[in-house]
Amino acid sequence: MASELHRAYPGGLPPAAQLLLDDPGRGLGRLVAQMRAWWDAVLAPRWEAILAMVESEVAHRGRRLAAEGPSAAFADLHDTVVWHDGAVEVHSRTDNDVDLGGRGLLLVPAAFAWPDVWPMNDPPWQPAIVYAPRGLADLWAPRRDDAGALDDLLGARRATILAALGRPSSTQELAQRLRASPAGVSAHLGVLRRAGLVAGRREGRHVLYGRTRAGDALLRAAGATPR
């Protein structure tokens, strides 16, 4: 850890980084708390989209490698990466020849790599090239609040019910809040439950319904604002 910190801050460690060396327990505790806050604010709302983008990129590279060979797999990876005479060349500020020795080379698409690529060859890690996947600009573009898409997909009433389940509610509570009939709300909840978008649990005489992770992901993917 010390070598990585000094590499990241060649001009001297800031106090927060120095704490990781002087008091690792306290320093790591602070770092974990900051990473959790950052995750909740930045990554969690977009995590499904990040995973989908990375999985699509891995599948794309694998198809090109299988169908056309290494030159196609590296062709549009980055302007500084080329396949030449059976070797991968990464044009960077450092000059270093790496013999893979049968270890293989990992291609690692990362949502935070743009605009550079990061060739990695630090033991004990497997040699890798970290790069920005296709479609990265769309991932971080401002999101549009468009509940209309969800209405078109589910129907206006079901979309409204799904969005209203930000807190667990009974059929009767939802009907009162939405000014709808309990029978109609119950029928729509049944469809949403069969689709895996909501789940119910019994509390006393009532069944409380709430969105599942799939329901939350669908709302975010449609750009709808949960209510």
Rank of each mutant, 00 (worst) to 15 (best):
A66K: 15
N121A: 15
N96G: 06
L77Q: 12
L100W: 08
H188N: 12
V191P: 11
W140L: 05
G190N: 10
L136C: 06
A72C: 12
F74D: 05
L189D: 05
D76G: 09
V185Y: 09
R167K: 13
R134W: 09
P70K: 11
A180F: 08
V117F: 00
R157N: 15
R158W: 08
R134A: 14
W125E: 15
D122M: 10
D116T: 05
L77G: 12
G69S: 03
D138L: 02
R157L: 13
R134H: 11
S169M: 15
A113R: 00
Q126P: 06
V108T: 01
V81T: 09
A141P: 10
S92H: 12
L162Q: 12
V117E: 00
P127T: 03
W140R: 08
R179N: 13
G102N: 12
G190W: 13
A73T: 04
D145W: 02
W125L: 15
M120K: 02
G86Y: 14
W83Q: 14
L174D: 09
A110N: 06
R167I: 12
A73R: 02
D138Q: 06
V82Q: 04
R134V: 04
V81Q: 05
G166H: 09
R143A: 15
S186D: 12
R103T: 09
T171R: 05
R157Y: 07
P119S: 08
P127D: 01
I129T: 02
R179T: 13
A149T: 13
R157F: 07
R134M: 04
D97Y: 10
F74G: 01
S181L: 14
G190L: 14
A149W: 11
T160Y: 06
A163I: 11
R179P: 01
D145E: 14
T171D: 05
P168A: 07
L106V: 03
V90C: 15
G104Q: 06
G166V: 04
R103S: 10
L139Y: 01
L77P: 09
R177F: 02
V185I: 14
G148W: 13
D146L: 08
G148L: 12
G102M: 04
P115E: 05
Y131W: 04
H91Q: 14
T80E: 10
L150A: 07
A183R: 06
E68V: 02
W125Y: 13
D99C: 01
W125N: 11
L77A: 08
W118S: 00
L107H: 03
E173P: 08
A72V: 06
T160I: 11
F112V: 00
A180K: 14
T160H: 15
D151K: 01
D152C: 12
A164L: 08
L165R: 02
V81S: 06
L150Q: 10
A149L: 15
H91C: 15
P115T: 04
V90Y: 09
A149H: 14
P124I: 00
L178D: 12
W125M: 10
P115C: 02
R103I: 03
V98C: 01
H84I: 10
A156E: 15
L136M: 11
A132F: 00
P127C: 02
G101I: 07
V90K: 12
P127W: 05
R144A: 09
H84V: 13
L189M: 02
S186K: 08
A163K: 09
D138G: 07
P127V: 03
A67E: 14
V191K: 15
L153T: 00
A163C: 08
A66Q: 13
A137G: 07
P168T: 10
